[in-house]
Design a binder for these strands. Structure first.
Lengths: 139, 139
DNA sequence: GTGGTATTGTACTAATCAGTTGAATAGGTG
DNA sequence: CACCTATTCAACTGATTAGTACAATACCAC
């Protein structure tokens, strides 16, 4: 189903059990049994979570006798962090970006006190497909 | 059903349509119609995506006549970024943390060439519940 | 080889999800 | 008022997900 890397990463992180597994793996590699211990869950369920993390590239597995130790692979996290980082201006820049964008538009428009640019009263759609003033963070 | 904030945020980000919506909203608030335009999808579907983003706190809605303009709210992204940031040592620290952890354990163990600490040959589980050398990033 | 431990595969269930269609609501315009 | 636009609600479908139980596999020790 050709789900992109970023989607798999974020989806994998969307489950608290999987985040806890990653947290555990941050302290070093661990077996399924060790990973399953804190949870009220069968080994098979944890094994499935590991499979999801593995498909997202967040975990790689080894082999040591019966054991298949899992270890953290943080590279996809770096990519996810980079994606989120593209929005950092919207929380650490005191929302300056939004404000300046809106005020620049209201300057052109002269009306509409709080709600920004609403101009289309005709069915013909203005070509508002990609009005990004920076490149689309989604790639 | 009592899904935590972080899970909702990451799950919301796990869909490329929703990420594209956020990317569009980074350029300023937009109506459902505007947001739906680039997608081969009904308005209702986009409306549902917006509901998910809203439940994750990533989007807030306004009211302007028939329009319910959506605008980006990046605060949950900051939290998500902070969570991922707890793992940044594992990608920008040249994997030093993992290496030092493993070598310190092998130093204690003296055997097991590549696979780290595998010691439990008895069913009694060693209390390996929370062996973090930093506090659990999951809270 | 037999038995024990660790892990995964298979088959199943209940819940959630992404999407649809079509009706309903809310508001502006003639 | 009737009509049009924008959006959401309700009901439905097909796919995915998180979990289970149990069998199968892989490996080690005796």
């Amino acid at each position: 189903m050709t789900t992109d890397e970023l989607s798999r990463t974020f989806s994998a992180l969307g489950d608290p059990t999987r985040r806890a597994i990653l947290a555990r793996l941050a302290a070093g590699e661990a077996t399924v049994g060790e990973l399953a211990a804190p949870f009220d869950m069968t080994f098979a369920a944890v094994s499935k979570h590991l499979r999801v993390l593995q498909d997202a590239g967040l975990v790689s597995r080894g082999r040591d006798a019966q054991y298949r130790p899992a270890r953290l692979d943080a590279r996809p996290l770096a990519e996810a962090s980079r994606w989120i980082g593209d929005y950092s201006q919207f929380w650490d820049d005191n929302l300056g970006a939004i404000d300046s964008y809106l005020s620049s538009l209201q300057q052109l428009n002269g009306s509409l006190p709080t709600s920004g640019p609403r101009d289309r009263r005709s069915p013909g759609r203005t070509t508002t497909d990609a009005p990004h003033d920076k490149e689309n963070p989604d790639g």
